[in-house]
Amino acid sequence: MEALKQELKSKIIEVLNLEDIAVEDINDNDALFGDGLGLDSIDALELIVLLDKDYGIKLTDPKEGKSIFVSIETMANYIAANRTK
C-alpha cells in the first residue's frame, strides 16, 4: 500500500503538472481539492482518466470521485480494492 501511495503522488504531480511540488510535499491525508493541493474540476476529470488508464477502473458516475479523491489515502484504498490492472 505504501508503494501505491508513493506511485500515486508521483503520477499526480506528473499528470497534473504540479510545478514546484515534490512527492515528499504531499501527505497521505492532505486534501487534494480546496485548501490542500488546490486541484480544480479539470484536474478531477484527469484523475478519472488516470484511474482508467493506469488501473483499469472506469468510473461511470463522476460524482463517485468526490469520495474517492479526498486524499492520497482514500485514492489508494479505492484503487487497491478495485483495480483490474
Binding site: 503538472n17 479539470i42 484536474d43 476529470l45 484527469e46 482518466v49 488508464k53
Partner: peptide
C-alpha cells in the same frame, strides 16, 4: 483511447 480533459480545454 484516453482523451485528456486538460488538453481538450
Amino acid at each position: 483511447y484516453f482523451p485528456s480533459p486538460s488538453v481538450f480545454v
